[in-house]
C-alpha cells in the first residue's frame, strides 16, 4: 500500500500506518512519514493517541483469554457431548 517516496501522505494512509505501528509492523520510513503527517494533522493526532491508548489497554496483564489449544479441546468435548445427547 506504500505510495512511493512521497514524504506527505494522505490521512487514510497515515491511519493505515498508525494501525500497523500498533502491532510494530510499520517500517522506519513509514514511521517517519506518519510523524511528519501528525505534525500538521490534528484529526490524525487524535486518532493516533486513541489508538495507542487502546493498545495499552490490551497490554494489561489482566486482559486474558483462553488459549487456542484449550479452546480446541473444549470444542472437541462439547461436540462429543452433543453427539451423546442426540
Amino acid at each position: 500500500m506504500s505510495t512511493g517516496n512521497k514524504i506527505f501522505v494522505s490521512c487514510e494512509n497515515a491511519n493505515h500506518i498508525c494501525d500497523k505501528n500498533q502491532y510494530k509492523e510499520a517500517s522506519f520510513w513509514e514511521k517517519v512519514k506518519l510523524n511528519i503527517h501528525l505534525i500538521y494533522c490534528k484529526a490524525c493526532r487524535k486518532y493516533s493517541s486513541k489508538n495507542t491508548k487502546l493498545t495499552k489497554l490490551f497490554k494489561d496483564p489482566k486482559v486474558i483469554s483462553i488459549n487456542q489449544s484449550a479452546k480446541d479441546a473444549m470444542k472437541e468435548q462439547l461436540k462429543k457431548k452433543m453427539s451423546e445427547l442426540e
Binding site: 486482559v63 486474558i64 483469554s65 483462553i66 479452546k71 473444549m74 470444542k75 462439547l78
Partner: peptide, 10 residues
C-alpha cells in the same frame, strides 16, 4: 466457544 468462552472466562 468462539463467541463466548473468553467473555465467560474473564
Amino acid at each position: 466457544i468462539d463467541k463466548y468462552s473468553d467473555y465467560l472466562f474473564n
